[in-house]
Write a protein that binds this DNA or RNA. Structure first.
Lengths: 171, 171
DNA sequence: CTATACGGTACTAATTTAGTACTTTTTAGC
DNA sequence: GCTAAAAAGTACTAAATTAGTACCGTATAG
């Protein structure tokens, strides 16, 4: 339903948070704390982001993650590409070729391809740096931390969020 | 994952097909046949589209469905609104208010709202008439039927946004 | 050499989506 | 009227996805 998955939402949040501290090393545990997310979940997301080259990792004690590139050089589209399993596209036929037997005869496909491009351009136009309001600094000027609970902010349109109070459903 | 559901995809296909025969009454069975989809499924989609006013129905023997408005006046965004359960929005927080406890503190939310708007605009810009290639023009030759199987053509779509100036590139 | 922290894989559970079945209402045609 | 075609409504079952968790392996600072 035109929604991004929760993990992608978490990823965006994590990266936007990191974008507020350019160059700083963040441990998965620290990020989980700061954002109010579960450690296993944050870990999972960071591993995936690392595999896609959006963050670089430093293993061992005192290790952690850093953005691989300046926040202005990483777009939301890339975050989505990294975290969503399927290739970008509103319809499967617009994401890959050969999945639909109607393909050659389908008059709608070309249009989906165009619609996809438009959507993608819009997403490419937004960089992580744009998601950090008072970012200019670099040091801890923003307060993103705190007891966050965005338990379920993401989803596209959808998520259930369930909770409302502070800690409950966060494992 | 930024994808539209299959039912929405079917709906788009059905409506685009109908758009090729303006004013003509189509029975659910006839459409199912022409598009190679299951009758129960087509019925379900048409009922929903009817409830949202995109098609008008005529009950009883020789009944059927017709587009409620000219194909140029129905946008893809409306089709999505009618068939997707959740309200439009890439993230839940951008679709509704009050679902996320971080809301007031979330710096990312405003951006998601902007991104949503951009995506939505892109979808509103495409009308059913645009999905019927040789339609208004004159040839009435379209052959959309056949054994279709659009098994899963639709899926993710991601969303978009807009921010940076445009670089729109129209593929 | 030990504690910390990332990396990979696999599994289970929950949520969503799709599809189907059955019943009711409406209307054209005999 | 009666009958058949066709939409409308409701509910349920099954399938597919997503989310979250666990566990084990590897690297490194002190």
């Amino acid at each position: 339903m035109l929604r991004i998955s929760k993990l992608t939402d978490y990823g965006t949040l994590i990266l936007a948070h990191m974008a507020g501290f350019p160059g700083r090393l963040h441990s998965a545990a620290g990020l989980a704390e700061a954002l109010g997310l579960g450690l296993p979940t944050v870990s999972k997301v960071l591993k995936t982001l690392g595999r896609h080259g959006l963050v670089s990792s430093q293993r061992g004690a005192h290790g952690g993650y850093v953005l691989s590139r300046p926040p202005s050089q990483i777009s939301v589209a890339e975050v989505i590409d990294a975290l969503e399993d399927q290739p970008f596209g509103l319809t499967e036929c617009s994401a890959s070729t050969g999945v639909c037997s109607m393909e050659n005869d389908c008059r709608i496909r070309d249009h989906w391809l165009r619609i996809n491009s438009a959507v993608r351009l819009a997403l490419q136009a937004v960089a992580l740096a744009d998601l950090v309001p008072q970012q200019g600094g670099a040091s801890g000027e923003h307060r993103l931390h705190g007891p966050p609970h965005l338990a379920n902010r993401m989803t596209t349109a959808c998520l259930p969020a369930s909770r409302t109070d502070d800690q409950e459903n966060r494992p």
